[in-house]
């Protein structure tokens, strides 16, 4: 039932104005042992109500991208060099500290991977939920408390009013992540950025959180950017997916198109390496040989070429630009795969 609504929604998404539009974002870290080009000309957008999945391995630049666009990286060492991030008609990269502060935790909510380290252990959960409500929305003490109870109930925490006075350590991992989601939702965000929100959780708890997110999307209709390395999670919740590798987006497509008809060799190889608990069992796992690159300089060639089985001469000389390969589907690769193969 809810799934049907979602696909109807995604059908007319392309006509909508994006709520967040990122163009040509570049982030460089200057370290003692040289530069690291963590994000290289990343462009993507998110439509209202859409769930955009961002997939990649560690070091592919997915978290740094999100932190750059909201100004969360300390400078130095980080240097957000270029690009535009349009949110609510404002370029966040040019915005002053005050504007950024009102956006962060306000119109853009964040959920991080590890709920234990992102909650403050010395304040009650009630205080931490009320904080954005009072700072961003100017609610009084009583109103903030009432809204906090509402929020905890919304994310499925039983006995919400009483639990406001509990500290983070009194909650289990799954419950803590629900608290994090409640805080992120406090100010009715237009965009919720969730960075590996279920990675630290067990599968049965992850299933609970994924159900909660599907439910919240129905109720609240905000756009969500969901960062993960787990293609299984993405398959279940995303409308559209971008795949990152070596600090850039190598492929972007609606979820079914990406899994059914991947057009970048990395996406294809990744989908072949992961075993499943359902369906036929492979005798031998497919392997992507080698390891992901560390981008010491701005790329002048395809970052995947060393591990790619479709490598051409051209891949050594030029970094492929994303080109359209299907409806709403683009890939940064010179090789042309036959469709549906």
């Amino acid at each position: 039932m809810p799934r049907g609504d979602l696909s109807d929604q995604s059908a007319d998404l392309s006509a909508l104005q994006p709520v967040l539009d990122v163009q040509n974002l570049k982030t460089v870290f200057k370290t003692r042992s040289g530069e690291v080009h963590a994000v290289n000309s990343v462009s993507f957008d998110v439509k209202p109500g859409e769930l955009l999945g961002v997939v990649g391995e560690s070091g592919s630049g997915k978290s740094v991208t999100m932190m750059s666009l909201i100004g969360l990286l300390p400078s130095p060492p980080a240097d957000v060099k270029d690009g535009r991030v349009i949110f609510d008609g404002v370029d966040l990269l040019k915005a002053d500290a005050k504007t950024l502060r009102s956006v962060r935790g306000g119109k853009i909510g964040f959920v991080f991977q590890d709920p234990m380290t992102s909650l403050n252990p010395v304040f009650t959960v009630g205080f931490q939920i009320a904080e954005p409500l009072r700072k961003h929305m100017g609610l009084g003490k009583r109103a903030a408390r009432a809204r906090s109870v509402e929020l905890l109930e919304l994310v499925g925490i039983p006995d919400a009013a009483r639990r406001l006075s509990d500290y983070p350590h009194q909650f289990s991992g799954g419950m803590r992540q629900r608290v994090m989601i409640a805080i992120a939702l406090a100010c009715d965000p237009k965009v919720l950025i969730a960075d590996e929100p279920t990675t630290a959780l067990d599968v049965t708890i992850q299933a609970q959180i994924l159900e909660l997110i599907k439910d919240l999307r129905q109720k609240l209709g905000m756009a969500i950017i969901w960062i993960t390395h787990d293609l299984g999670v993405i398959a279940g919740i995303a409308d559209r997916v971008v795949v990152m590798y070596g600090g850039q987006i190598v492929e972007q497509a609606p979820v079914k198109e990406l899994f059914g008809n991947p057009q970048h060799p990395y996406t294809r190889a990744l989908l072949e390496t992961i075993p499943s608990v359902r369906g036929p069992r492979e005798d031998k796992l497919n392997v992507i040989e080698g390891q992901p690159p560390i981008m010491g300089a701005a790329p002048t060639a395809c970052p995947f070429r060393a591990r790619c089985s479709f490598r051409h001469d051209r891949c050594d000389r030029e970094n492929p630009v994303r080109r359209t390969v299907g409806p709403g589907h683009d890939a940064a690769c010179f090789h042309e795969f036959s469709h549906g193969a």
Binding site: R3, V203, T204, Q206, A207, Q208, L210, E211, D230, L231, G232, V233, I234, A235, G236, V255, K256, F259, G260, L271, I274, S276, V277, R278, G279
Partner: peptide, 20 residues
Amino acid sequence: LSAVPEPDPNIEEQVERIIL
């Protein structure tokens, strides 16, 4: 087993999850 996500959106649509 039912909680394990499946890297295939078509299967994901049909999986009946037992949510503990």
